[in-house]
Design a binder for these strands. Structure first.
Lengths: 256, 256
DNA sequence: ACTTCGAAAATACTATACGAAATAGTATTC
DNA sequence: GAATACTATTTCGTATAGTATTTTCGAAGT
């Protein structure tokens, strides 16, 4: 609902700096992220464009891109629908893929990092800590975003653009977040979405998973900053395996 | 020009089994591969939809998807343009990426292959040989397509869908790069595009690169069929490194 | 000659309305 | 009760108009 206003005002008043189509793309992504568009549910272009208060044209473009991203599936002449949540197998496949890529990326990052990279990495770790302290009710969101930025950063420091691009394309954080959300939505009926996020974070936080993830990130960051390639590689490997373990119960629950 | 007719007839006469938007997507992709849309050149939606004799809507959707594929880039409010070709660095990055993924995929394939997979793999190797013998002037095309199918097949036998998907995304860039080589290395003006491809094949073929690649494929296939995981992994690693070496001189020439 | 400015043209982007074709759902017939 | 026919809904594509932004290009000022 808040989104409608944003779209309308951005459209009518302010001189646009970007293109509506891109905004719509981001908005729909967010809606999928928040389960406002539930996994597996149909996406009616008419309804969506009405809700967002834009015409069909930008919605169509956005959906076409989301389809390439694997977040939306198109059935010809039947319409678009949000993709289902990751199955256990898909989750394992995804993490196996990451295990092939990211430890190598961390290793390279440790070898090739320069001062700019070091500054960026330190800044990211710092901001993660402060975000966790002050984000209040949005701490889980903050954590998730930090995680995404961290892995993107390491990939980019590795110097291999292909690797960096391909990490982005996995949409890891989005899939994992959806998984957790679904898990939570399953348990508590009738609550508002904001409350779900809050609850979700609390569970995640109180289980110590958040701190663990940050700790592991710190180990990776330290190794990279020390330019200890072997340690960086090992730390990233450990981190991804731990991360998979933390997410697996959610996947189990989501898949009933 | 031949394409126009296809589009029009598919649109007007026959009952459609797929969606126009998808056809347009394939057509534009073909146009990029054929250098009908040159790398780096701008893509005028009006002109393109006129040329293909369809409205803008399906063209926009196709371009949005091609953008996700990395074949087209969008600059907000300025329009779409075909992406530039791979630089030497990007080519190296891409092959480094493949070195991380595909040897593992081959290893897994050797471990997990079943009878269906064995049949498919044998059939592919067989068809590669016959295609090379009898394809005549389309031998380069045949070889290129076999290469694509072979690597796709191994990825899919590996059982990891994420890995298979990501291989697919890399391949179009390699394909494009090969055709680009053709164009650059044989810069003969006034010749038709088909002639370029033909010329490329001849050089490639006469240099023995084609046979080499097939030989390496056979080594990989044998190891997988023998379910010798280690050998399969090693053979794939060797193959990709050799493949890069075969590409590199052309890449150097192409980038002046 | 070189920049700087500004109008005109070209182009990108969005909105809207309509229509054809396929799917989905419902009723009718046998 | 099953197959068929009809209706409704929805998707997909077309056409067109209007707005916003970039680009072009020429004139004025330095």
């Amino acid at each position: 609902m808040a989104k409608k206003k944003t779209a309308a005002s951005a459209n009518k008043r302010t001189p646009r700096r970007s293109v509506l189509s891109d905004e719509i793309y981001e908005m729909i992504k967010t809606m999928i992220f928040d389960h406002e568009i539930a996994p597996g549910s149909r996406v009616n272009i008419d309804a969506l464009s009405a809700q967002l208060e834009v015409s069909q044209t930008p919605v169509r473009e956005a959906l076409a891109r989301l389809e390439s991203d694997g977040l939306i599936a198109k059935e010809p002449l039947k319409g678009y629908k949000a993709t289902e949540l990751l199955s256990i197998k898909q989750l394992n496949d995804l993490f196996q893929f990451r295990l092939l890529i990211e430890p190598w990326a961390a290793e390279q990052a440790a070898k090739l990092i320069d001062n700019t990279g070091k500054t960026a990495l330190k800044a990211e770790m710092q901001s993660a800590k402060t975000a966790l302290k002050f984000a209040g009710e949005n701490q889980f969101q903050a954590l998730s975003e930090h995680d995404s930025r961290f892995h993107t950063l390491v990939s980019s420091i590795s110097g291999n653009q292909t690797v960096a691009d391909f990490y982005d394309r996995t949409h890891c954080h989005l899939h994992l977040f959806r998984l957790y959300m679904a898990n939570k939505l399953h348990r508590i009926d009738g609550e508002s979405r904001a409350d779900f996020v809050q609850d979700l974070f609390e569970q995640y936080y109180q289980s110590g998973s958040g701190q663990l993830a940050i700790k592991e990130h710190e180990a990776i960051a330290k190794a990279i900053l020390d330019q200890n390639a072997k340690a960086a590689k090992a730390a990233m490997h450990t981190h991804i395996e731990s991360s998979l373990k933390r997410f697996s119960p959610a996947a189990l629950a989501a898949n009933k």
